[in-house]
Amino acid sequence: MTEDRSTGSAFSRRAFLKGASAAAVTGAAATAATHARGPVELETFAPGTHAIALQVNGKEQKLAVESRTTLLDALRDRLDLTGAKKGCDRGACGGCTVIVDGVTVNSCLMLAIDAIGKPITTVEGLAQGGVDHPLVQNFAHCDAMQCGFCTPGMVMSSLQCLNQNQQPDRQTIQRAIAGNICRCGTYGRVCEAVERTAAGRGDQALRAPAHGGSK
């Protein structure tokens, strides 16, 4: 299913090619497209908006971005996925953490164009058909939040921790969430939520992430 959020600019031929071959944009299809235009012409995104496609939570989303648009701004302002938070906007707080191509990243430091063709999972992807991922259930069960601003990023780092290690010890969890700052100091309860999830508590029907989970 494809949703089109590209506004304000006509679909260019390149953008169409990008959309059509987004899953393999760094692969053969895109290379062939580049060569078809001749070896001299470099692929460029000039100032102004460009229509691109991103693979977000298992769906292809078309949207308009500028070369300077970060993945975080694209998700929040273009796709209305406001789970990822803009705290510091400098990679120093972890509020913007999402999973791209199987690893957690600061989406505020990643250009949206750099995410073309890569599976992206945001915290919104952890609810399917109105049922929350057990990790999310356990965040609620353990009351692992106060103000909640860091929580979406904290959940994504916790999810990645579980993707890499099914039975993480406390130290492993602490290292995994070291890039997420919580000013309310909920770290202990976050660790409990991860441990509870690892122990199989919560509705395990959704235990395995459907998309972009492990690499």
């Binding site: 692929e43 995104f45 100032p47 102004g48 070369s67 300077r68 164009i113």
Partner: peptide, 11 residues
Amino acid sequence: MKEFTYVLPRS
């Protein structure tokens, strides 16, 4: 961030 042209070389 000020606008810039993003260039994507393949080689």
